[in-house]
């Protein structure tokens, strides 16, 4: 019986631990090479990020992403993490208040909830269309643009629900900010 256990374990290890992942890798590279490689944004031979991973923007002329609780620095993609604060945690309340104040510079009204909370992954590339609209005046002012121009950029990058039904409408901040500099 010991022999059967060990042999079976070896056979299943070869099949599901070696052949299966290698076969999926081969097929994935054949069918969807860009996605399998991380949906990378490459410019002039240099990797400028991934379309799926958020990046940290703090200057007024860019749209700001959501807060990020990844270790040592926000949007540290090599160490994904949420804040995991309980709903009554004092640090959570503090972070939300500080973020609200920062966002309200030059305007009034409460910011949308996604802008003052951290995502589960700490790498969320998206904000809601409302969250982008909320920042349009600041971005436009910093760039000496009419607000309409900023809003056009937002509209061009706004994605609806996938297949019309699934998920939530959203704007990819990394791609939107790249559009701004074009």
């Amino acid at each position: 019986m010991i022999r059967a256990c060990l042999t079976m374990l070896v056979l299943f290890t070869v099949l599901t631990g070696v052949v299966y992942p290698l076969a999926i890798t081969g097929l994935a590279q054949l069918l969807f090479p860009w996605q399998a490689g991380g949906s990378l944004i490459v410019e002039g031979g240099k990797v400028k990020g991934s379309e799926l991973l958020g990046q940290w923007f703090t200057e007024p002329q860019y749209f700001w992403p959501r807060l990020s609780a990844t270790a040592t620095a926000p949007y540290n993609a090599a160490s994904s993490s949420g804040s995991n604060y309980g709903p009554h945690h004092p640090d959570l309340q503090k972070a939300m208040r500080e973020r609200t104040v920062a966002l309200q510079a030059g305007r009034t009204g409460m910011p949308p909830i996604d802008l003052i909370t951290a995502s589960g992954s700490g790498l969320d590339p998206h904000i809601s269309p409302e969250a982008a609209e909320y920042q349009a005046t600041r971005v436009a002012a910093a760039r000496h643009w009419p607000v309409e121009r900023a809003k056009q950029r937002i509209a061009a990058r706004t994605e609806g629900r996938q297949w019309g039904w699934l998920g939530e409408p959203r704007v990819n901040v990394v791609l939107l900010n790249r559009d701004l500099d074009r």
Binding site: T25, A28, Q35, G37, K46, E51, L52, L53
Partner: peptide, 20 residues
């Protein structure tokens, strides 16, 4: 868009970000 490869982690030019 789920990844499937055996590459090393990729540093992003001009930022601190490293893509796993």
């Amino acid at each position: 868009g789920v990844i499937q490869n055996f590459d090393s982690y990729v540093p992003v030019a001009g930022t601190q970000q490293v893509i796993p």
